[in-house]
Amino acid sequence: MKKHTLKLSILALLTAATTSAFAAGPTGSGPNPYADCGIGAAIFKDTEWAAATSNVTWDLGSTAITSATVSPETCTKRSVKTAMFIRDAYAQIVEDAARGDGEHLASALTLMECGGNRSSAMGEVRNNLGEAISAPGYNDQQALEKAGQLFNIINTAARNNCTV
């Protein structure tokens, strides 16, 4: 029983730490849809074999997720879509950032409503992401934590650099 309680306590602490990490994020990053809007772990990555490809279930898009909205301001359809895009296309966005440009990073900025001065925003994403992935413990994070971190980096870069 003690062991069970200890496990639950550790789980609760980890959950709290993860949630607060998302919610706080880097300075100026604002709220984060992963923590606030009920976006779970990557849905399609856990899809059963039969449900893959031509047989994706209803509402794999944003509908089901927006229904879990708890914070209307953070969880607009667009920010949820952006969060899902970053979650699903995480590797390609990071690789685009490493190269300095690319359509996945460009689309992430578009979803962040970055109209002008995008090259500066891409530069800032590149610098901050480069630091993030070389930091100790980066690869110990769960996929959703990494996505949350990337969301904040792009969001901050868009706010600092972009014109609408």
Binding site: K45, A52, T53, V56, T57, L60, G61, K81, F85, D88
Partner: peptide, 19 residues
């Protein structure tokens, strides 16, 4: 069977990266 709305980036990752 039925039609469902899906963002293209889902297909891009599912087909191009996973499968």
């Amino acid at each position: 069977g039925g039609f469902s709305p899906i963002d293209f980036f889902f297909h891009d990752t599912n087909y191009g990266e996973n499968e």
